[in-house]
């Protein structure tokens, strides 16, 4: 079981670059990259809130719960 971050998909849909988004939500490009690559261990509600506001979407559009094949 894992949480998949679909931030790149939403960014492509909204046609927004990483640098632009990082600036908008006041996050460093390095941290945004960590989030985009799925290497983040946790996401703060404040960050999620800012992302949803900047991308005009719901948390579910960015985060997705996926069951591993072994669990099924």
């Amino acid at each position: 079981m894992r949480i998949v971050v679909n931030l790149d998909v939403m960014m492509a849909k909204r046609k927004i670059s990483s640098g632009e988004l990082a600036k908008k939500i006041d996050l460093t490009p390095a941290n945004l990259s960590v989030l985009k690559m799925g290497r983040a261990k946790a996401v703060r509600f404040s960050t999620l809130c800012a992302l949803c506001e900047a991308l005009d979407c719901q948390p579910g559009d960015i985060l997705e719960f996926r069951k591993d094949e072994e669990d099924e």
């Binding site: 996050l27 941290n31 945004l32 960590v34 989030l35 290497r39 983040a40 261990k41 946790a42 996401v43 703060r44 960050t47």
Partner: peptide, 8 residues
């Protein structure tokens, strides 16, 4: 520390 650093 690692977990804190990877909390965005």
């Amino acid at each position: 520390k690692t977990e804190n650093e990877l909390t965005i």
